[in-house]
Computed example of a mutant assay.
Amino acid sequence: MLLAIDAGNTNVVFALVANENGGREIKARWRIATDPRRTADEYAVWLSQLLSLEGYDRSQVDGVIVSTVVPRAQHNLEVLASKYFKTDALIAGKPPVEWGVAIDVDEPASLGADRAVNTIAAHALHDGDLIVIDFGTATTFDLSDYNGAYKGGIIAPGINLSLDALVAAAAKLPRIAIEAPASLSVIGRNTVDQMNIGIYWGYIGMIEGLVGRMKAEVGRPVKVIATGGLATLFEQHTNVFDTIEPDLTIQGLAIMWERAHITP
């Protein structure tokens, strides 16, 4: 099986991916807070316990692929692969797993690995011009054309980051959970409701407004794909998403592995 690792700014996601009955299946997934100081040994202890709880062991993993936007985390993940899984980790975007798609922007090298991987996965799963919205530490909007070329996008503060900044800057505002408001009213009657409305409906307004402007600029039909843990939360009150792909980055890593002609 393949161990796909997506190291983001907030969390590192580990997923076991198997090819069974001609299809790709994610057998298990786990996440841990991103800490560049975490050693390969610490990862191994934590991951070995979780593998065991799911009925697997390290010997069943014969391949590792990593996507990271945290350069300092890469080395320890490579050591984890070599020391505990007896294989060299492949790094997304580097030989033999280059992107394989055109990165048509002013500074291609500055594109986050997760965004490139999402683009690859989105076009393997869907046809045409695509916008991928990824709800992570930042909320990113990525446009790719019908040929699969990455054409650019938008970076906005993630909703949790926005809420943290609001609470940190305003002494009397409480920390609240991010959830869909119980009422469709946008006139709050108390502080907590007003904050919830501002964060939730304000974010939906941003999403719909930015997607609308992107579609108008493209001038052709565009499918919108959402990914990330909060996508389903916003889906309740907007029809801007055509589909939700919760494991888009992991799927992209598995696709890149397969395209390198290595069978997990």
Results as ranks from 00 to 15, higher is better:
244 I>W: 08
263 T>M: 01
26 I>A: 02
170 A>R: 02
208 E>C: 00
223 K>A: 07
212 G>C: 08
99 W>G: 01
221 P>W: 01
136 G>N: 11
77 L>E: 12
171 A>Q: 14
146 Y>E: 15
38 R>I: 09
35 D>N: 11
72 R>H: 09
10 T>V: 05
31 R>A: 15
78 E>L: 13
168 A>H: 13
173 L>D: 01
264 P>M: 08
127 D>N: 11
94 K>T: 15
153 G>A: 05
149 A>E: 05
58 R>V: 10
133 I>K: 11
262 I>E: 11
187 I>A: 14
37 R>S: 15
207 I>A: 03
171 A>K: 15
183 S>G: 00
261 H>C: 05
174 P>Y: 10
229 G>T: 10
71 P>Y: 13
135 F>E: 00
182 A>L: 08
188 G>A: 05
180 A>G: 03
237 H>R: 14
178 I>P: 08
121 A>G: 09
146 Y>W: 12
78 E>M: 12
190 N>C: 05
220 R>A: 15
215 K>I: 01
167 V>D: 06
49 Q>P: 05
150 Y>E: 06
226 A>W: 09
155 I>W: 09
251 Q>T: 13
239 N>R: 15
117 V>A: 05
137 T>D: 02
210 L>H: 03
169 A>C: 12
73 A>L: 13
178 I>A: 08
166 L>I: 11
65 I>W: 04
183 S>P: 00
136 G>I: 11
158 G>Q: 13
224 V>H: 02
241 F>G: 00
128 G>I: 04
126 H>E: 12
99 W>D: 00
177 A>G: 14
173 L>N: 07
243 T>M: 04
46 W>A: 08
167 V>A: 06
49 Q>E: 15
216 A>M: 04
208 E>F: 04
24 R>Q: 07
41 D>P: 03
212 G>E: 10
34 T>L: 02
15 A>P: 09
162 S>D: 02
202 G>V: 02
124 A>D: 05
93 G>H: 05
181 P>T: 01
253 L>S: 12
144 S>E: 07
88 D>G: 10
148 G>Q: 10
11 N>W: 10
20 E>V: 15
10 T>C: 02
124 A>E: 09
145 D>Q: 11
97 V>N: 02
5 I>L: 14
185 S>G: 04
105 V>R: 03
197 I>Q: 01
191 T>R: 03
171 A>P: 15
28 A>V: 09
39 T>Q: 07
247 D>E: 15
236 Q>W: 09
20 E>D: 11
191 T>F: 04
91 I>D: 02
18 A>I: 02
104 D>Y: 12
66 V>N: 05
